[in-house]
Design a protein around this nucleic acid. Structure first.
Lengths: 382, 382
DNA sequence: CCTACAACTGAATCGTTCC
DNA sequence: GGGAACGATTCAGTTGTAG
């Protein structure tokens, strides 16, 4: 095992690498060997772009008789489906060992391999969260006209297990997408132009380099700054580059020394974003909980204040203990909100409104005001 | 086994149905039993919409506390993945027997089951030709904000074997698609409105009825007039209806008598199409909506960039997730635009400007630039 | 008649914290 | 660990009703 910039070393006596020793490095080694040396439950997110097992024999010619430069590398050759399945299950199992219980994995593939991978993920105990379609704006056409233009690839997003509390930056993604929920189909160009790494002879350095935009969206949406992101098939380092740019740690594993060299140079050249620029939208769920009673306690809401439903057809009164009284019933803002609507549940913060001049405003704005007060106060506290 | 309009009959002595006796019929029977009675190598195309094994548990409420009417039918219950795999391999094997050597199969599914199905197809000897993505224009949202909107389903198109001379109507699909090669991602609305079959009580007759437009495209592209199309999970007969409309023969198998009744009535009412009508079935071209986040992702706007209102009195900063930060507030370009103007809504694309030399220009010009890049990005000219 | 608005709906693996 | 309370969360439609 070799790490970026260091000379070959035998590693510690227990055959394990410390996480620190490989952090933000590309490891030059076989994927299974390197994974076995990592400590278990140590990484937050995995992004894997395994060989697709394309099964291309012969060559493909364009209509003008030029040859299509397909994937013919040895690493994409497997004897049969069973061999590919064994390979898949082995690296998935090794990945799951090093993944934290609340971590998640992404795998990208095409119809040649993604069904094997998806089934193996389920068999190994991962819990599928979504399949996501990368729609290519500029796919290679089908030159022979015998099939549909293969215009997409499939990504699978899966948690360590059914009860994992995986990271999903819902609010950030929604803002990113002009205030609409992010869908499972993503439109992105393929990696070309200056972004595409070239070797010394000017040919593409790697046959299947992924666009950094794809990794940008994956990391922004399903990891947090400071997380450790592992890529067991690092190739020319797209995951590492995106991770470095977005303030995530990365560990890459790649067995081809030419790819490793290209990846290390590329990642070293990446300028990380500033902390401020990384200050993405905070999820509401992470905000500190403020009970309604605290608003009464702080004087922001006076006991006796009248609250109304959005259309001001129901009126309730605030009690000194932070409960609401309405038509004989009394309880929390949520309970009474559910009660007056005849429903089993209700978010009282958005249901109940107070009069502010002529307008009705949800009491949630008062909670927001108190939250700001508390945060500013906390900054000045010792 | 019973066929449409005929009384129950024991069938011929060899336990086989003649093809003629079941042509253009919906067979009321279990899928495996009915398949076993069909002559081998007798159908040209199979379209299968098997149970997805959704594994739904408990109930799901919309934000307004109404209940989502999920798929809780018995036919979608399996003990575990192994049971689902056995079921899948059994019906696929039975289908392959009745399929002509140059025939093909389509199977539709979601991430819950499609990886099992795809792997089983390969294991049973089918040869995958494409996976096709049905992108829904109007999917059900993710109500809890825990995952990406599940906005697509996957279809797999596979030939009987690697050397099958399958049908692919390249030219008619290309004409159908405004003279562009038909891609592997199809945009279609879900089945709703008058097309959606209702039962006597006005509720949906089947929980998962597919849009006929999807079947039009499948049959138009991968079968010929006069072909025999088999649907082993016929449900309320969408495949049969599309086949009859397009001048193909069909055989449907369905074990639920209510579904069979609805399907037979529906298909009987179908008026086969004229060529002129076929021409009106053009797919809608996808309008390319570009969210602000895509500008950041693509590098056209760098995180940290300053944006201004038209008179440069307000300044805001772009974050890595495509949100704007301004005077302590953070959100989408639209939200923050509305916020700084004290309005409830704002078109951020025209409100926010960036410095271009000495001039302020609306960010909408950057969106236009990206749109052009995406459309002209084709690396390979055909 | 039309327009406006309210209500309803779709293959869905859709919590977390505190006591 | 079990149960209750808290409280976060939706898009593109179609259908039905009111005016």
């Amino acid at each position: 095992m070799r790490v970026c910039g260091s000379s070959p070393s035998p590693g510690p006596a227990d055959g394990r690498d410390s996480l620190e020793s490989v952090l933000d490095q590309i490891i030059l080694d076989d994927c299974l060997r390197a994974l076995a040396r990592l400590p278990e439950a140590s990484v937050d997110l995995i992004f894997a772009d395994p060989p697709y097992n394309l099964q291309l024999d012969g060559e493909l010619l364009r209509p003008n008789n030029t040859r299509v430069d397909g994937v013919h590398q040895d690493w994409d050759r497997f004897d049969d489906l069973a061999a590919y399945d064994r390979f898949t299950r082995d690296w998935l199992r090794a990945c799951r060992r090093v993944l934290k219980p609340d971590g998640a994995i992404w795998v990208i593939g095409s119809y040649h391999n993604i069904f094997r991978v998806g089934a193996a993920l389920q068999d190994e105990g991962f819990w599928l969260l979504n399949d996501v379609i990368w729609r290519k704006t500029n796919p290679m056409p089908n030159f022979r006209g015998r099939r549909f233009t293969n215009a997409h690839e499939t990504l699978i997003w899966a948690a360590h297990g059914p009860r994992s509390r995986y990271t999903f930056n819902y609010d950030s993604l929604k803002a990113f997408n002009d205030d609409l929920q992010m869908r499972s189909d993503w439109l992105l160009p393929i990696c070309s132009g200056p972004e595409r790494l070239k070797d010394d002879t000017g040919r593409k350095a790697h046959p299947t380099q992924k666009p950094e935009g794809l990794l940008y969206r994956v990391l922004l949406g399903t990891s947090r700054p400071g997380d450790v992101v592992l890529d067991p098939f690092a190739g020319t380092g797209t995951t590492g580059a995106a991770a470095r740019r977005l303030g995530r740690h990365f560990i890459g594993i790649e067995r081809d020394s030419d790819y490793v060299k290209a990846a290390r140079e590329r990642i070293a050249a990446v300028e990380p974003l500033s902390q401020q620029d990384l200050d993405t939208l905070k999820p509401k769920r992470a905000a500190k909980r403020i009970p309604f009673g605290a608003l009464v306690e702080s004087g922001l809401v006076q006991p006796g204040t009248a609250l109304y439903d959005p259309r001001a057809t129901v009126k309730a009164q605030v009690r000194a203990d932070g409960t609401l009284a309405c038509a004989g019933a009394q309880g929390s803002i949520h309970k009474i909100g559910a009660h007056v609507q005849g429903r089993s549940a209700c978010n009282g913060w958005t249901f109940w409104h107070f009069r502010d001049g002529g307008e009705l405003r949800p009491i949630d704005v008062l909670r927001e005001r108190l939250r700001t007060q508390l945060e500013n106060g906390a900054e000045h506290a010792p």
